[in-house]
Amino acid sequence: MVARREILFNLVVRDLEVKYKGSVIGIFWSLLSPFLMLIIYTLVFRYVIGTTVKNFPLFFMCGFLPWIFLSNSLMGAAPSIVNNPNLVRKVYMPRAIIPLSAMVACLVEFFMTLVILILALPCFGCWPGLWALLLPAVALIQAVFVGGLALLFSASTVHFRDVKHLLEVLLIVWFWLTPIVYQLSRVMSLELPSVLLSKLVAIVIRFNPMTAYVSFYRAILLDNTLPPPLTIALVLIYALGSASIGWMLFSRSSPRFAEVV
């Protein structure tokens, strides 16, 4: 058990190091990209489209940072098994550590960006309250959810090498079906050409796991309250569901990884 944590730690450090090439500027880059997105999305949604969301930059970041965590984790974890044949074919270690370390590396970055977000809240006239203390816990629950998907996608990439492309498309669709740049309440009263379609879209967005996580972050950071009980329940159910399905499928296919990687 101790040894496993040690391997995980070493792999996370390796991932971050390779990414940043050991330089402070490297870390700066990974913080810069969400910042650039913030500027662009604010520009477009507030000044071009004219969104009615108040305090759009904060509203956006509370959804976008958890999203980046999900998206980076999955894009990193999916090819992680096939990209590390040295760790699969030539030594024995619990293979789940490989995709999970890719996820944890993104979690570290996520925490760094969250710290900056917390520091930025007062600058936008929004003082974080006591409920904001739940932030690390919510992030960890989301990490369980993301970890399950990381296992799932890394195992399927071993068998189907084009899962990565599929994932890219999936992430784009998933992004727009998550209330990151718009409010959930707007979706509930959507008026699409067909009533059925409006209902369908509303349901998909309502029960999209990321919707629950984003709502949770916004509640504790922007409104200083807990989200409704249903959201809390969903957040936990999605995490447990994703982790158990991911783990089950992964452990079923991992014994043969050394032969097919």
Partner: peptide, 30 residues
């Protein structure tokens, strides 16, 4: 185990870091 060239190694990081990596895979604590 010492099975093949580069077992348990990561090519992009230093030899020293690979020692820690490999040692943890073989079950050593830090």
């Amino acid at each position: 185990t010492l099975l093949e060239l580069g077992s348990g190694f990561s090519m992009e990081i230093s030899g020293r870091k690979n020692i820690f990596m490999n040692a943890s895979i073989l079950g050593l604590s830090r």
